[in-house]
Design a protein around this nucleic acid. Sequence first.
DNA 1: ACGGACTACGCAAACGATTGCATTCAATTA
DNA 2: TAATTGAATGCAATCGTTTGCGTAGTCCGT
Lengths: 335, 335
Amino acid sequence: MKDIARELGVSVATVSRALSDSPSISRERRQAIQQFAREHNYFPNVIAEQLRHSRRNPSRAIGVIVPELVHYYFSSILDGIESEASSRGYHLIVAKSNESYEREVQICEAMLKNKVCGIIVSQAKDTERYDHFEHLTAAGVPLVFYDRICPALNASRVVVDDYMGTMNAVSHLIETGCKRIAFYGASMNMMIAKNRFNGYRDALYKYGLTLDEDLVRICDNRADAERITPAMMHMENRPDAFFAVNDETAIGILSVVKRMGYTVPDDVSICGFTNGFRATVCDPMLTTVEQRGTQVGKEAADILIGLVEGTLSPDHAEKRIVKTRLVIRGTTRHP
Amino acid sequence: MKDIARELGVSVATVSRALSDSPSISRERRQAIQQFAREHNYFPNVIAEQLRHSRRNPSRAIGVIVPELVHYYFSSILDGIESEASSRGYHLIVAKSNESYEREVQICEAMLKNKVCGIIVSQAKDTERYDHFEHLTAAGVPLVFYDRICPALNASRVVVDDYMGTMNAVSHLIETGCKRIAFYGASMNMMIAKNRFNGYRDALYKYGLTLDEDLVRICDNRADAERITPAMMHMENRPDAFFAVNDETAIGILSVVKRMGYTVPDDVSICGFTNGFRATVCDPMLTTVEQRGTQVGKEAADILIGLVEGTLSPDHAEKRIVKTRLVIRGTTRHP
DNA sequence: ACGGACTACGCAAACGATTGCATTCAATTA
DNA sequence: TAATTGAATGCAATCGTTTGCGTAGTCCGT
């Protein structure tokens, strides 16, 4: 701007006003300045702009904290956030916590320093203190949780309808003739694990089946599934169906069951949760609950931007639930 | 800082110096100021710092442009970049181009405005003009390409050893008895497609096999693979093996071939390229070339940071090749 | 007692923009 | 003709830091 001002023999203030199309500058001057700027491809220094406006205007950078990146669900969510944010003129600062509380704290600090206008976060698995999040809100940085929410904090959040998703899936298993349905869930200190279990339990009750504790296991990955499933199948009263907390676990069950000589879905039905890449790769293809990560991401970004732009009140915690959808494929019988 | 200065009855300059531990401030004052700052949890305004230093010091934000996010290889790369960058004190601004040239241009502009210290990019599929990249280097923003590089630009880059990876994979097929090996590749205007094809061709030559054009097809996704594979298998002289440019395509072939009643690998061998989630989910598990995305990401970040910090000369284009590894599983015979 | 050296600090200008207020100049009005 | 008005522009402060340079004060040596 200084250069433009010098070249055209005007003051920097005039240049500034001309570039922002202020009517207080005469038409000719305005156009001359604008053209000159264009020709010498001038563009404003955002850093300076931000400094000037730091009191009033927030930045347009959204911080996103992800537990891991190489993960179907989290990628989808990130994708959703990116789409929503970029279409509304925001950009993303992305960091992964590696499921570590300490790293999460560091990231929060760094993001605060870097003046993000808000943060979208899914907690690390080992996060049990929430001071760092409270610091952020205290500093006026809006926060939106997704997937793993923090029940202790009354913050905005968007989650998937774990309860109904599981309930529908298990109902489907029952309706296609399954009577002894095993449940492989994650450790119950996470809300999502609890909700899915409740969906399972209530589906059983709804159809008058009793819940057999022997059929409920904590297991949320393939290795564990391959380890514990043979014993399940050797029970005198073996399960005729499995519901798994994610596709990965379901695939583990599938591979064990096939290896043991059972056919799927005739002898054993299997249902997963995610509907990621894996679901259409296994043979038969996996019946699973679609988790709609992209939608979760979009909603989260929408809430955050609402908070930033003042459309949503900062005091009110906006809570959204994204509906799931049961995708019936080859690992369950058709109704 | 102004507040601290006022409270402690010194000048802002003194506070600044004290906080940066300058020896020109007396020990007592320095400590008093530092303590006061800590107690009132002051932390510097990066925006202002940057503005002040914009002439000399670059920011610590690395721009990353990804064609898509929900994609095993790109997630892995992003993961590698994140690890390397965050461990060296940089953070990431991530944007996806959606394989669109226009979006790519927009993103470059936005990143330039936001003063990233450098950009790591894989071109969108439909990018054929490179002005936007040249603008960036002209503006002094270092650029590192990964995966899809731009042959017209002599820029730093890191790619996977597509040639040797394919060569070894096809050699493996030949060594396990395959004689008519089909090749499903991507369109040849991408370097990676060309290199993989050359690896295929040279492996055939090495073992004295002739290249049959009828066995070479442009096909890089599952839907196409499922469409064209039946005809391949109905040829009078059908292929006894397939090499596919990625796992997804390989899975498509696998599912068709199984459905047609052939057994894998006894009747037909299949080899993919990626070693993503899918490879261990299909049945039998997929033999494939491990692409080591995380390593690619790390190398890319390493180069970029080298460029930014002056360890690497900006004129010299650093070109790194990440070695692949053949992972032999169930879709090929064992040697 | 006075010059020199050294310590410890403050002043003020920068970084690149924005903006309230003052100023200039010409045109209009009384 | 003098006063009023309005349009067009400039001045200077501001955002939060950093830093070159100047200066007050102290101590020392002669």
